[in-house]
């Protein structure tokens, strides 16, 4: 038995009393270290990046008079537009193929795996947790001029000379991106498929749909939220990818991320690099809004 303390009721002053009662204040206080890190690590750098994008390079320093000159350059000089378009094109194709190839896999695990489901999910997502750099590097080993494919085909006598289009091309970038980001597609697809009530499928069958019609009329529409978020989760991060185009892209495969790095590295025009980052961010934000709108619409239709 726990006894009541003899001490008189503790008096708290008003401020502590308010603090004890205000849930929000306690919550914010508890997570304040995290909030500080988020603000210092995300919000402040992005704001400074915006500020710097309106400066200009001045020798080894910066001219801090606000100007939109960098943005004008980004809009007018063809190289920037070309790379941006190419980034979206390459990411778009990679996203398309990833989702297309991952859908049957997610479908299989959601509908046809009954035992050890967890093991399958772990197996499908495990590679994603290993170093991105090394996974990209692995494709260089495979697609290289003297790489796995070329040397194997040469040894087998299927080709006379190494296939040159394999490495340093947009194709190489697309293949690698699709492979490296598969887990990002599998998970949302799996979740949305798993959620589908199996009795709906039985009802569709009962009402006369064969497997294919049933898939087109029930399964696919119901899994659209998963498809949309899979596209979102792959398309957005890959547009700004640096490693894959740098290792496998060659001149044709260079993307906007590499150009930004160039500005901060060899070219040493930080304000221009900042402006390009902001342009990329703006595009991403706009696309995110589109995805958000699509998701909401898809969910509304289901609701």
């Amino acid at each position: 038995m726990v006894s009541v303390p003899d001490a008189a009721p503790v008096r708290r002053n008003r401020l502590t009393a308010w603090f004890r009662r205000s849930e929000a204040a306690q919550g914010y206080a508890l997570m304040s270290p995290t909030l500080v890190v988020l603000v210092v690590g995300i919000a402040v750098p992005l704001l400074i990046l915006i500020a710097m994008s309106m400066w200009t390079r001045d020798g080894f320093g910066f001219d801090m008079t606000p100007t939109f000159a960098n943005y004008e350059r980004a809009a007018t000089e063809p190289i920037f537009g070309t790379l941006l378009t190419r980034s979206f094109f390459v990411s778009g194709l990679a996203t398309f193929f990833t989702v297309l190839l991952c859908y049957p896999m997610a479908y299989y695990v959601a509908f046809h795996v009954h035992r050890n489901k967890m093991l399958w999910i772990v197996l499908m997502t495990l590679p994603f947790w290993t170093s991105y750099l090394l996974r990209v590097f692995a494709w260089r080993v495979i697609l290289g001029y003297e790489g796995v494919i070329n040397s194997a085909f040469l040894t087998a006598g299927w080709i006379e000379a190494p296939l040159e289009f394999l490495l340093y091309s947009q194709t190489a970038v697309i293949i690698t991106l699709a492979h490296a980001w598969a887990a990002f597609a599998i998970l949302p697809l799996y979740v949305s498929l798993e959620k589908i009530d199996k009795s709906l499928l039985e009802a569709a069958t009962d009402l006369g749909d064969g497997p294919f019609t049933r898939f087109m009329r029930i399964t696919l529409p119901l899994s659209m939220p998963g498809v949309i978020s899979a596209c979102f989760l792959i398309f957005i991060p890959t547009t700004g990818d640096y490693i894959t185009p740098a290792l496998l892209g060659g001149p044709d495969g260079v993307m906007i991320g590499n150009l930004i790095q160039l500005q901060f590295g060899p070219v040493n025009n930080w304000p221009m690099g900042s402006a390009l980052s902001i342009v990329l961010m703006a595009w991403i934000a706009a696309l995110a809004l589109v995805f958000l709108f699509l998701t909401r619409k898809a969910k509304d239709q289901l609701a």
């Binding site: 995300i42 750098p45 710097m52 979102f232 640096y242 980052s277 990329l280 961010m281």
Partner: peptide, 18 residues
């Protein structure tokens, strides 16, 4: 807090560098 999951790493890299 989830932004770094989605936004390309290059952007956060250069932002922090700046």
């Amino acid at each position: 807090a989830m932004l770094p999951l989605i936004v390309p790493g290059v952007i956060f890299g250069v932002a922090l560098l700046v």
